[in-house]
Structure formats: structure tokens, C-alpha cells
């Protein structure tokens, strides 16, 4: 690189200079889907604020919403990485369940209700999560099976393993310290589970946007061939990315135990789809190469705020599904529009 700089200052031909920064910040900001989707969120909040001023915009309700998206937020961090590589992970809900089952069974056997037990549970849960994630990544990268199929498979295998381990009956015990301090504890009025999630989201955002790992994630989704040609070990990166998603599902498994006090084997049935919807609403393209952590978080809050608002003003649950689905389609439609303008086409 440096060798080019010492040559020719003349720069024959056009006297054009290439700038090293944004030409027009406003243009750049406008081009980010997360900005307009944030606008949508603000509008939704405002509408409910007007419709139900005394009940919707209360600190209590806002904390509840934040608490209820916390586990999904942790999962959405991993999902954002996976979808940016143009992959998908349908198995996160099942991986969460099987991680929490293994952790809960061991913690139950240890009997103790203290932090030591909880820590063992966390480590186990994370290890189990990483195992399933790496299995996904390995099959996607090395065996060349499409991620949709791989994770559809591990979705049912992991759930099956959880059912075999428990005989289908939930393990309904989590150390008291977990439930009291993490699941329902508060720090300065903010739920601890939300703080934990926020820390993970911020770290995930830094990893995605500031580090080489994140850069390669985008490169793989944007053009896998070009990533390979510049020497990126795409297969290993994919295993790492799916493994990272599994790790987060393991953490979510412990958080879920803390929040619900049970392994929710029959639950988490729509977790994968809800998280995928949030990430896509937030502007991450299912075709890969594009997306942001901030967008995923906004995308997570839109369905959550809509549901809370609809419940509070008393709209039938059927309409909630209609609304979330419509917003999902609208978001992808707008994403397509942006894509066609970005690739230079005027349509």
C-alpha cells in the first residue's frame, strides 16, 4: 500500500480529488432504513400516547415493554449477524430451550440456590448454545446445506433433545438468586434483565460495526466470492457467526429461566419468527450485506409497543397479528425500493 504513495504526484488526467469522508451527511442518514423505521416507532408511540394517555405512557408500562423484549433482544443480536451474512437461524428458540433445560437440570441436582449454582448454570447453558450454533454453522459452511434447511432441522432436533432429557415435563426450578436478582430484580427502577440485554446489544453493535469480525460479516453477505478472493476464511467465519448466535441463545436460555422460573419447553414456539421479523423490520436485508444493530432494536420494539398499545386500548388479538404482518411487509417493500435505488436503477 505504502509503495503507491511515494509515486507520481502529478496524477495525470482529471484533477479530481477523492474525499475521505461523507459528502453530505443528511443524504447518508436519510438512506438508512433504521432512521425512517425509528420515525414509525415514534409515530406509533405518539398515537397510543394520545389514545391512552394515562395508561400507555406510564413508566410502569414502558419498563414492562422493555423487560418483555429483553430476551428477544439478546437473540436479535445474533440473528442480525446471521441475516447480514444472508443466512437465517430458525433454531434459536429450540436452542434456548435445550440450553435452559440442561442448565436447569444440573442446577436442580446441585440443589443450592446461590450464585455458584447460577454461574454453573450459565456456563452450561452457554456451552450447549455454542454447540448447537457451531453445528448449524458447520453444516451451513462445510456441508453446503442451505441455512433455512439446516436450522429447520436443528430446530426440531434440539427441541426433541430437550423433550428427551425431561420426558416432556418442564423443569420448574431455577436458583432463587437468578429469579430474584436477574429475572425480577431492578436497578434504579430499570429491570436487571433489561440492563443485561442492553449491555449485550451494545457489545454486539460494537462487534458488528467497529471490528474486523463485523466487517467480514458484511463482506460475506454482500459478495461471498469477493470475500473468498481477498483471503477471508468464509467457512470459518460462518461457523463463528452461527456459534456466536448459539452462545447468545444460551445466555437467553438462562435469562428465560430467570424470568419464567421454568424451561418453557412447550413455549418459545414463535420466538424465532418474532426475532427474524424484528431484525428485518429494522432494515437488515435478508439478501445479506446490509443491516444495523440499532435497526434491529427499533424493529424489536415496534411489534412489542404495538401489542402493548393494542392490549391497553382493547383491540382484538387478531388485529395485532395483522398489524405486525403488514408492517413487516411494508418494511421489506421499502427495503426493496432502497435497494433498487442503491444499485443505480431508476425502476
Amino acid at each position: 500500500m505504502s509503495s503507491t504513495t511515494e509515486h507520481q504526484k502529478a496524477g495525470s488526467g482529471a484533477p479530481m480529488e477523492t474525499s475521505a469522508s461523507h459528502e453530505n451527511l443528511v443524504e447518508r442518514v436519510k438512506a438508512m432504513q433504521s432512521v425512517w423505521i425509528l420515525g414509525v416507532l415514534v409515530v406509533i408511540i405518539a398515537v397510543f400516547g394520545v389514545l391512552a394517555p394515562t395508561t400507555f405512557l406510564t413508566p410502569g408500562n414502558i419498563t414492562n415493554i422493555a423487560q418483555n423484549v429483553s430476551i428477544w433482544a439478546v437473540l436479535a443480536v445474533g440473528m442480525t449477524f446471521v441475516i447480514i451474512t444472508s443466512g437465517i437461524d430458525l433454531s434459536i428458540g429450540s436452542v434456548l430451550v435445550v440450553s435452559s433445560v440442561v442448565a436447569a437440570q444440573v442446577m436442580e441436582r446441585m440443589g443450592d440456590q446461590g450464585w455458584g449454582t447460577a454461574l454453573v448454570g450459565l456456563v452450561l447453558s452457554v456451552v450447549v448454545g455454542i454447540f448447537w450454533g457451531c453445528l448449524n454453522g458447520f453444516l451451513v459452511a462445510k456441508a453446503n446445506v442451505p441455512p433455512l434447511i439446516v436450522t429447520l432441522g436443528t430446530l426440531s432436533v434440539a427441541l426433541g433433545v430437550a423433550q428427551i432429557l425431561t420426558g416432556g415435563l418442564d423443569v420448574r426450578s431455577a436458583p432463587a438468586v437468578l429469579q430474584d436478582n436477574i429475572g425480577y430484580g431492578r436497578l434504579a427502577g430499570v429491570p436487571v434483565i433489561t440492563i443485561v440485554a442492553l449491555v449485550i446489544v451494545v457489545l454486539g453493535g460494537i462487534l458488528l460495526h467497529k471490528t474486523r469480525f463485523g466487517r467480514y460479516t458484511y463482506a460475506i453477505g454482500s459478495n461471498e466470492t469477493s470475500a473468498r478472493r481477498v483471503g477471508i476464511n468464509v467457512d470459518r467465519k460462518l461457523v463463528q457467526i452461527y456459534g456466536f448466535t448459539g452462545l447468545l441463545a444460551g445466555i437467553a436460555g438462562i435469562l428465560s429461566l430467570a424470568q419464567y422460573g421454568t424451561t418453557t419447553i412447550a413455549g418459545q414456539s414463535l420466538t424465532n419468527l418474532n426475532v427474524i421479523a424484528a431484525v428485518v423490520i429494522g432494515g437488515t436485508s435478508i439478501f445479506g450485506g446490509q443491516g444495523s444493530m440499532f435497526g434491529s432494536m427499533v424493529g424489536l420494539f415496534i411489534p412489542a409497543v404495538l401489542q402493548s398499545g393494542f392490549v391497553i386500548i382493547g383491540v382484538s388479538p387478531y388485529w395485532q397479528t395483522v398489524a405486525v404482518g403488514s408492517i413487516l411487509i411494508t418494511a421489506v417493500y421499502v427495503d426493496q425500493q432502497r435497494r433498487s435505488t442503491a444499485s443505480g436503477g431508476r425502476r
Partner: peptide
Amino acid sequence: QKFDPTLQKPIVDSVTAS
């Protein structure tokens, strides 16, 4: 949408707020 506590809890929380 499903007989699932992870889906029912947010609903109950919002009902409480209302």
C-alpha cells in the same frame, strides 16, 4: 397466538398497565 407463557406474559403485563 399459542398456549405459550412467553407469549402470554407480555399480554398480562400490558393488561396490568391498562
